[in-house]
Amino acid sequence: MLLQLLINTLIVGSGYGLIAMAFRLMYSVSPFFNLTLGSVVAVSAYAALYFTPSLRAGAIFPVVAIAALLSWALEAFAYKPMRDRRASPMILLVASLGLYTIFESVISLAFGVKYHALGDGAQIYLGFTTMPLVQFLIIIFNFAVFAGLSVFLHHSFMGKQIRAVNDEAALAHMIGMKTDRIIMIVSVITGAILGLSGVLIGYDTGMEPTMGFNLLFKGIIAAIIGGMRNLRGAFFGALFLAFSENVAVWAFASEWRDLVAFAIFITFLYLRPQGIFQKKVEA
C-alpha cells in the first residue's frame, strides 16, 4: 500500500516536475506566468498522437523538435516584440492567455474535443514490481532533466549567464550580456523539456485539448510550493504536490484530486508564501 503510494507519487510528481522545472526556468529569464507553456505541452501530446502510427517510439524526436521550435517561435514572434515595446508582465500574461485560447481551439478543430488515448501498454519488470514502461520513463527523464539542468546552470558559462539574468535583468543588461539571446536559448530548452513531458504524459494518461492549462497549473503550483527561487524547489515541490494528491485520492476519491491540489496551494499561500524549502525573506 505504502509502496504503491510512493510509486504513484514518483510517477505523478515526475510529470508535474518536468513542467514545473520548465516553467521555473522560463520564469527566471522572462518573469511572467506564460500560459503558452501549457500549449506547448498539449501540442506535443497531439503531435505524438499524429506521428506514432508511422514512427512508433521514434515519434519522440520530431515531437521534441516541434516543441522546441514552437517555444522559440512564440518567444521570437510574440513575446520579444511586445517586450521591446515595454509591455508590462500583465500585458504579456493576457497576450499569452489569448494565444493559449487560440492553440486550444486549433487543437480542438483538428482532433476534436474528445479524449484520446495513446499508450501501447508496454510494461517493464523492475525486480519487485511491474509498471508501464512510459511511467518508468517519466521518472527517469524527470531525474535526468533535473540533474542535467542543475549541472548546466551551475557549471556552464551559459548557465551562469542565465542565472545572472534571473538575479537582476537590468544589471545583466548593463554588463553587456545579450539578454534577448539568453531568453531565446532558454525558450528552446524549455520547449524541449515541455515537448518531452507532453509526449510522455500523452502516452501515459492520454490527452484532451484542455490538458495544457491543467498541467501547467499543476506545474505552477509545484513551483510556487517549492518557493519559486530555484530549480530544486520546483523539483521537490512537484513531488510534494503529487504525494499530497495521492494521499487525498487514496483517502477520498479521484475526482477530488484537483480540489485537494488547490486546497494545498491555498494553504501554502496563506501559511508559507515563501514555499516549503525557503527561509522567510523580507519582501
Partner: peptide
C-alpha cells in the same frame, strides 16, 4: 455547431492578443 464554437474561441483569443498589442 462544434466548429463554430471553436472558431469563436479562436476569435476571442485573437482579440485578446490584438488588444494587448494595439490598445491594452
Amino acid at each position: 455547431y462544434e466548429t463554430a464554437a471553436q472558431l469563436q474561441q479562436m476569435i476571442y483569443g485573437a482579440m485578446l492578443v490584438l488588444m494587448m498589442v494595439l490598445r491594452p
